[in-house]
Design a protein around this nucleic acid. Structure first.
Length: 556
RNA sequence: GCGCCCAUAGCUCAGCUGGAUAGAGCGUUGGACUACGAAUCCAAAGGUCGCAGGUUCGAAUCCUGCUGGGCGCGCCA
């Protein structure tokens, strides 16, 4: 309906220009807002104020002209008012909102979806945790936000591909191999020392060594160290990756592909990428033999090394090759979720994207800030190398998937998050998760009640919807009508947290309505109308929760 | 030293591309179940939107400077 009004305004502006009442050369984008204060109408526009600069006439006068030129053929506007410095406030006919209910009824699960993305292919890369240890809570946040974002983009009409980048080529993996190697030998000879630095001390490494011993006994002991470390690191990475997949599976996060860094080298894609950049004359060599990319001309602070003086490629080189491959696979828009501590890497990667011949905006990076795990109000220490971190799977054991997901999605992803384990575990009103779920369960309960009393809800066209005229009812309908815009906005801004906020507000309105008015009464016609209304609320809550990957329970 | 992010109620945070009297949850205080689930609802108290300038019809939002906090600045990954 926002579009309908926008059209009406555009039309009015057009008409006013033609008959000479307004001299506007360039039409500004029309902005329509839902005012915070309901007394300012259902929608308001600042159009007159925006125009007053170019037209050189007082805003209120322009507003008057615009209103006079509106032709509301469908009769959706009850009245318009000029307010304050020159706002035009629109008051829609109340029965107009009944259309929203029919719309939701007709669309069902599809209500809120749009074709904004026009099927454009998007690759969203997230988690991408190194296969050197189990996922921790920070990874969990990235995983959940990435998944919700993917769902949002799908809802907005994009063709989304979810990818996990596996860093299986770097030094970290070798370090892991060494750690397992030492733990493995310790199983046979307790005097073998574990290094103070440069190793993964975690308990899970010992488990891996034991598993290796169970499978292959002592067959690595006599092996050449380099070869043993190589084979052990592979074994360990596979095993850890399997654990990561199990965690993701548990959160119902599925990837379309796992992309191996090692494969980039194996398939000589890094070399091909460097050759392409070289052909574009974007590379230069320094005295010591290092090869650099001229990123400084593309928005980065300085030029970056692709091949080191010793001949080895940098991580940056393989990363460029990786992104080149993403484009080569036909994705027009790339979305990366990175830990916020990598923010300095963003301009570098964007300049690389430009070097490959794409627009800098073809890559969008969503930064995920740190998570502080709190227990008893105190932060739980989680040194990466201390080995005593709390794993994601332990957190899931404690609080469950719904709660974990909701907590992660409750804040903007680029701000710090305190994850309060005690709060997350309380099954009470202090826990925000249940508020929305309860609204859904409550509606389901009313429907069960209705059924018991032999009350069924007829098809939309047989419901006497005009019986819905209470302020709380109109209010609910208006709010339901904004859901598609909220989804679109959240998708385009890549801010999933807007959805929980919307749902919370919707639940508030539902609870308030429920408390004040009876749904089921002796008035059969009224009862059916009200059931129809809360049925649509249920649809929207369910659709919203689905976008978050949180369940919508029928009972609690 | 340079760069990025943040600063809003006692606490945790929203505030949609600048819009009208800055919102929510928790906490505090006081109310509401013989009717559809009280995991709920209603009400009150609580703010110099870090500070100082600037841009304009209009600024929590944009610009500059400052203060305070987080994080980056490898031929590491």
């Amino acid at each position: 309906m926002k579009e309908t009004l926008t059209d009406l305004l555009n039309d009015s502006l057009d008409r006013a220009c033609r008959d000479g009442s307004l001299a506007v050369k360039t039409v500004p984008p029309i902005q329509l807002d839902v005012p915070k204060d309901a007394s300012f109408g259902d929608f308001a526009t600042n159009l007159a104020m925006v125009l007053s600069g170019t037209v050189k006439r007082p805003p209120r006068e322009i507003a008057k002209t615009l209103i006079d030129h509106i032709s509301d053929l469908d009769g959706i506007i009850a009245r318009c008012e000029i307010a304050g410095p020159g706002f035009i406030n629109f008051y829609l006919r109340e029965d107009y909102w009944l259309r929203t209910l029919k719309e939701i009824d007709a669309a069902g699960e599809a209500y809120g979806r749009s074709n904004l993305g026009k099927g454009r292919r998007v690759l969203i890369e997230f988690v991408s945790a190194n296969p050197t240890g189990p996922l921790h809570i920070g990874h969990g946040r990235g995983a959940v936000v990435g998944d919700a974002l993917a769902r949002l983009l799908e809802a907005a009409g994009f063709a989304v591909h979810r990818e996990f980048y596996v860093n299986d080529a770097g030094r970290q993996l070798r370090t892991l191999g060494c750690s397992v190697w030492i733990r493995y030998r310790q199983l046979f000879d307790g005097s073998v020392p574990f290094p103070d630095e440069d190793g993964y001390p975690g308990e899970y490494v010992i488990d891996i060594a034991k598993a290796l011993q169970r499978r292959d006994a002592d067959q690595y002991l006599g092996m050449d160290e380099a070869e043993a470390v190589e084979r052990l690191s592979e074994f360990a990475a596979e095993r850890i990756l399997a654990g990561i997949r199990a965690d993701l599976d548990r959160m119902e996060i599925r990837f379309d592909s796992f992309f191996s860094e090692k494969a980039l080298y194996r398939d000589e894609k890094v070399q091909a990428c460097i050759a392409e950049l070289d052909a574009k004359a974007l590379l230069f060599r320094e005295e010591n033999g290092a090869l650099l990319l001229r990123t400084s001309t593309l928005g980065d602070d300085k030029d970056r090394v692709l091949i080191k003086g010793d001949g080895d490629p940098t991580y940056f080189a393989s990363d460029i090759a990786y992104h080149r491959d993403k484009f080569a696979r036909g994705f027009e828009q790339l979305v990366n979720l990175w830990g916020a501590d990598h923010h300095g890497y963003v301009p570098r990667m964007k300049s690389a994207v430009q070097a490959l011949g794409h627009d800098a905006d073809a890559l969008r990076v969503v930064l995920i800030q740190m998570v502080n795990l709190l227990r008893d109000g105190k932060p739980v220490r989680m040194g990466k190398r201390s080995g005593e971190f709390v794993t994601l799977s332990e957190v899931l054991d404690e609080v469950g998937n719904d709660v974990a997901r909701y907590f992660f999605l409750l804040r903007r992803s680029d701000s710090h998050l305190d994850f309060d384990l005690d709060l997350a575990k309380t099954q009470s009103n202090e826990n925000p998760v249940y508020y929305v779920q309860y609204a859904h369960a409550r509606i389901c309960s009313v429907f069960r009640q209705a059924e018991e009393r032999g009350l069924s809800v007829p098809a939309a066209e047989d419901v006497t919807m005009e019986r819905l005229a209470l302020p709380e009812e109109i209010d609910l309908m208006k709010y339901l009508a904004t859901f598609p815009e909220v989804v679109e906005g959240a998708a385009m801004a890549m801010e999933p947290h807007r959805i929980p906020f919307y749902l919370q507000e919707l639940a508030t309105r539902l609870h308030a309505y429920y408390f004040k008015h009876r749904i089921i009464s002796d008035d059969r016609e009224l009862s059916q109308a009200r059931l129809f209304l809360i049925g649509r609320v249920r649809t929207v809550i369910r659709n919203g929760l689905t976008l978050l990957g949180v369940s919508a329970p029928v009972t609690m």
